[in-house]
Nucleic acid binder design. Structure first.
Lengths: 396, 396
DNA sequence: GCTGCTTTGTCCTGTGAGTGGAAAAAGTGG
DNA sequence: CCACTTTTTCCACTCACAGGACAAAGCAGC
């Protein structure tokens, strides 16, 4: 199949495409109920979309009491590629134009190997998905990287945990390789987009999405739009001071949140505890696996290990303290917690909630849900697909 | 003069009004250069604005090499009222439609006397300004109050420092009394608007405006628009924890920024220091005035008093620490410091800068000016006038 | 003061977006 | 088969707006 290259010709068409993306197949009459256009105008725009091939006819709709309406839907052959590059693993997924995941691969990988090696692997994974018959090609791709991005150009800037990526033209390079439009963003922003599109944040205009993985970051959504800050580093909360004169951090300061709680810090603290003989559970795991990760701590906690629980609780307290500050400042309508350590589950959530509800003022917390993300590891790739579809479904 | 009641009939007219407000008298030709409209269309819209009386002819412009163009300007008889209610004083100013301050009054006053008493005084001040010939009436008024506001309705909600105001229909009541449209907002947001309109933030889309007065608050501007949060309490940074297990705060927690540094806290600490004999300078001022305020501390610091300087420096450090966190999170293009304690000047600013530049990452601070507000005590009233003019100069 | 050139303002017509009514087409339930 | 509903198409009409033609006004040089 030839890849689609069409873009909506005006704001009405863009609106219709997004309705079809978010609401699935729809009758012309139903579409008419949702947009404020006359029937005649709507018919014209739908016809034009059909001509471009972005939208196809899809049989007759159920009757609403009279003549049955003709259904339309986004072309089911459209394919988006969602890529979520984490610090220690990569997720690649294929979606249709309605952003339903058709296939999903996950592989361990170290970002520090640099963009060339990483993208070789990403392209191989994409090829594998294509080979399995899920796609003949891609109409667009969204890429998430674990660091700040100069968004308009799609270029990582000064990423602390991924040296070698600074200034690498990710968007340009991948667009070339994949032969389709590409958008690049911070992985945390994509998680926020994912939860907004298909997760817990569907109905909230202003929310925060805190991702606790190898590092800690925060997606900020203002009025339904991701806010990226002046230089693309908004939401970089890992280096907010959580403990005065606390642990030294890679950034050169002391007491950064990330130095006290994150996947990496948790693994380090757990190993330390195991070596000091504070926890038999952790020690045995350390021996078996030759190392500890956040997953081990989660398992130990689930098994009732007091040390593991305490580590989680303390980390949650630190995180909650920082989030409490952000809540006072930003007054969001929702806080989503996600990322690798969500396995720590309700122990973590409870600690965070306790801090926030205690420290922030009632007006800000009164009606503020603090919840775990709904999409888990797929939030990133769905967000990535959403990113590129938002781009492609906007007037050229 | 009969008050104007007209509003722009469409987005073009709104655009033109704002150009005339921000750029002063302008020729039709110049306006044409700034908006993307054909000359014919422009002429029609300008004529309609002339008909409404919002805009008047203003002679001939200088020649640009050919026929001289006709100038137009906002009706010079339009008057806006800007009211900035602080915790301990009230500012009232009259502006023309170009938001130039024509008259300004300031009076001490305690908000805790409640809305009825306060507005009695505000109305008296407005009447005084009117009586001095500056205005025959008002076409709109903007009101700033020192606490969170449910913005669409113009009603204070759960304001900690102004009991008795909760739920008082400020907008409705004042609109009745003044006989003109009224908009109400948090005083910090208005300061941000003021600095954006006529101060240091004219060219910045995303910035923070930290006001340190009796309390501490922060105006947030995202993409040129004030962000107010889900319940109107965004920017309420006074109760972010600055010192773990620090001083008890009126809100019930410990270590809130406001408990450690603010006009009130500074006065308290200075008094304590004077009583303990730590500073002769402060002690003598305490004796003379029967009490100390932030102004005394500023004066003592200017006179070189070590204790006063240390108080300011410590407060600046605390504030800087909190701001550093906000900078990491929000990645603004500018931070403005304002409010009553700006008298503390560069000692304070230096302390804040040190903290922020040390604690936040280079990508966020690399090109981040941290400056004092340019407008001082007039920022609030100018912001108030700007608020109501933005409202009135938008399509009905 | 006259002449050629530039800019500004006005008038007028053409175009394309969009609305809303009428009528035809396609169903449903009795 | 009939009365009624919904969907779709068709068409005439309105309105916003662009852009060209032309007149008015001003400048600079002679």
């Amino acid at each position: 199949m030839r890849r689609m290259t069409a873009r909506p010709g005006n704001a009405h068409q863009a609106r219709l495409l997004k309705l079809l993306r978010d609401g699935g197949p729809n009758s012309r009459a139903q579409l008419g109920d949702q947009v404020d256009l006359s029937r005649s105008k709507l018919a014209v725009e739908v016809d034009r979309l059909l001509e471009t091939g972005l939208v196809v006819a899809d049989g007759l709709a159920a009757s609403r009491g009279g003549r049955r309406s003709h259904n339309v839907r986004l072309n089911p052959e459209l394919r988006f590629l969602g890529v979520d590059i984490g610090a220690t693993s990569v997720d690649v997924a294929v979606t249709n134009a309605e952003l339903e995941t058709l296939g999903h691969l996950n592989q361990p990988m170290d970002v520090r190997e640099g963009p060339v090696a990483v993208f070789e692997q990403v392209l191989a994974m994409a090829a594998k998905l294509r080979a399995s018959g899920l796609a003949e090609g891609f109409d667009g791709a969204g890429i998430g990287v674990p660091g700040p991005v100069r968004f308009p150009e799609g270029i990582p800037v000064a990423p602390p945990i991924m040296p070698g990526w600074d200034g690498f033209p990710v968007r340009e390079a991948l667009s070339q390789e994949l032969g389709c439009p590409v958008m690049v963003d911070n992985d945390v922003n994509l998680m926020a987009l994912g939860e907004q599109h298909a997760g817990v944040a569907r109905t909230v205009a202003d929310f925060l999405c805190v991702k606790i993985g190898t590092g800690i970051g925060c997606g900020i959504v203002v009025g339904g739009e991701v806010y990226r800050g002046t230089t693309g580093s908004a939401g970089d909360i890992g280096h907010i001071q959580a403990v005065p004169d606390g642990r030294p951090c890679a950034c050169g300061n002391r007491g950064c949140l990330e130095a006290h709680f994150s996947g990496a810090a948790l693994a380090r603290d757990a190993t330390e505890a195991a070596q000091q003989g504070l926890s038999a559970e952790l020690a045995s795991r350390l021996e078996t696996n030759g190392g500890l990760t956040a997953v081990d701590v989660a398992a130990a906690a689930a098994a009732g290990d007091a040390t593991a629980l305490e580590l989680i609780r303390e980390g949650g307290n630190r995180t909650g303290q920082v989030i409490a500050g952000l809540v006072s400042f930003f007054n969001p309508g929702l806080v989503v917690i996600g990322g690798g350590v969500t396995g720590l589950g309700h122990t973590l959530l409870a600690a965070i909630r306790t801090q926030v509800y205690r420290q922030s003022l009632p007006l800000a917390t009164g009606n503020l849900p603090i919840v775990l993300g709904e999409l888990g590891p797929t939030a990133g790739v769905i967000g990535a697909a959403r990113l590129i579809s938002d781009h492609l479904f906007s007037p050229a």
